[in-house]
Simulated assay, not measured.
Amino acid sequence: MKGIILAAGKGTRLYPCTLPVCKPLLPVYDKPMIYYPLSMLMKAGIREILIIVPEGETETFERLFGHGEKLGLEIQYAEQPVQRGIADAFLIGESFIGGDCVCLALGDNICYGPAFRRTLRRMGNRVREKGGAGIFGYYVADPRPFGVVEFDPNGRVISLEEKPLIPKSHYIVPGLYFYDPQVVAFAKALQPSSRGELEITAVNERYLEQGQLRVHALDAEYTWFDAGTAERLYEAAGAIKSAQRSGVMIGCIEEIALDNQWITLEQLAAGAASLHQTRYGQYLEALAEDRAEEQ
Rank of each mutant, 00 (worst) to 15 (best):
F116V: 13
A115V: 11
V53D: 08
I110Q: 04
I75P: 13
A7I: 04
R118N: 12
P20D: 06
Q80A: 12
A8T: 02
G93V: 03
E57Q: 14
V82I: 15
L106P: 00
K70N: 14
T60R: 14
F90E: 02
S39V: 11
A105S: 10
I52V: 11
F90R: 01
A115P: 06
D88F: 15
I49C: 14
A89S: 15
K2Q: 11
R47I: 09
L120P: 08
K31P: 00
P32A: 06
C22N: 12
E74N: 14
E74G: 07
R13C: 02
C103E: 10
I4F: 00
D30Q: 11
E69P: 03
P54E: 07
G45E: 13
L106A: 07
G56Y: 02
G107V: 08
G9M: 04
E48V: 00
D108H: 13
D30M: 05
P27M: 11
G56I: 00
Y112V: 05
L41V: 09
I97F: 03
K10L: 07
K23T: 00
L41W: 06
R47V: 10
E59N: 11
A7G: 01
L104T: 10
F61M: 04
K43F: 05
L104R: 10
R117V: 09
E57H: 15
I92T: 07
L106I: 15
E69T: 05
E57C: 15
D88G: 02
G9Y: 04
R84S: 14
G66N: 11
T58C: 03
V28Q: 01
K10D: 05
A87Q: 00
E94W: 03
A87M: 05
I92M: 00
D100E: 15
K10H: 05
G11T: 00
C111Y: 09
R84H: 07
K31A: 05
P20T: 05
G9V: 03
T18Y: 02
T58L: 05
Q76F: 13
S39R: 05
D88K: 14
L26D: 05
I49D: 08
E79W: 01
H67P: 04
G66C: 12
L41F: 07
V21E: 08
I52E: 03
F116H: 10
T18A: 00
G72E: 12
M33V: 00
Y35G: 02
I86W: 08
L120F: 14
F116A: 11
P114I: 13
L25G: 00
Q80H: 09
A89D: 04
Q83M: 14
D100G: 05
I51N: 06
F96P: 01
Y29R: 02
D88M: 13
E69A: 10
L26Y: 02
C22Y: 04
R47D: 11
